[in-house]
Simulated scan of single mutants.
Amino acid sequence: MLGLLRSLWSFRAYVASSILADFKTRFVRSRLGFAWVVLNPLAQVSIYAFILSGLMASRIPGIDNTFGYAIYLLSGLLAWNLFSEIVDRLMKVFIANANVIKKVRFPRIVLPVIAVGTALINNAALLVVMCVLFALFGHPITPAILLVVPAALLVSAFAACIGMILGVLNVFIRDIEQVVPILLQVVFWFTPIIYPVNIIPERFHSLLELSPMFHIVDSYHRLVVYAQPLQWSSVLYIVVLVLILLPLAMFLFRRASAEMVDVL
């Protein structure tokens, strides 16, 4: 692990320049450029709000605001988009960089780090826009929102562990890339993002709480929507999962690193 950290530090300039290059590549031919980072999730929010706000607005507890459903939805999507983007990027990172891996000698761990760094910047841009929208909606922005930063880092660590495992497996089993988006959709709809948990019968709550994303999204709702303190049991649950998944992800990565070159 220390060797990987030293490799990352020695390639820190490459990581930074690669993140910048990623943005340039994605937006150089686009008139709106970086705006697409926030326009896509905002369009998603607008669609859900337009279709469901009349049905859900009165069911969001503790929000006395005309735009209460949009506020609730935005905060949940802030967490979900970070998680799903990191998982998606890392699942494809080794295949997408196959030519570089085969031709250039460098610590391959920098590829997942670049992907996570790019996703975090995208999410930070969405957070800034979200705060502006909340101000326009008349929703108070409290100091509790600052805790979104460490929460985002914890979400990133959890998503990176899952993404690394899937990324290594995807090199050898290409069906992974087809199956995971379906599983993510299932998890999305079983997580209280577009609906509040209070509309689910209480006997099913214990099942929902088995999902790590339930605890992550609930933490974002507490910080952003209700300005409440985090439930440390939820934080501890995610930390324990990271501590379990991280050694597994690093073991698979180190074990399969040499073989990936041949398969790619």
Rank of each mutant, 00 (worst) to 15 (best):
P41T: 06
P41G: 06
L42E: 02
L42Y: 09
L42Q: 02
L42T: 09
V45E: 01
I51F: 13
S53V: 07
M56Q: 11
P61H: 08
I63G: 00
D64F: 05
N65I: 01
T66L: 13
G68Y: 00
G68H: 00
Y69T: 10
I71G: 02
L73Y: 05
G76C: 10
A79Q: 03
W80A: 07
N81C: 06
L82H: 02
L82V: 08
S84Y: 02
I86L: 09
V87M: 09
V87N: 05
R89A: 14
V93A: 10
F94W: 07
I95D: 07
A96R: 07
A96L: 12
N99Q: 13
V100Y: 12
K103Y: 06
K103L: 14
V104A: 06
R105A: 15
V110T: 15
V110F: 00
V110H: 01
L111N: 00
L111W: 00
L111G: 01
P112Y: 03
A115E: 07
V116R: 00
T118P: 00
I121E: 03
N123A: 08
A125C: 12
V128E: 05
V128W: 03
L133W: 04
F134N: 04
F137Y: 14
T142S: 14
P143E: 11
A144F: 15
I145Y: 03
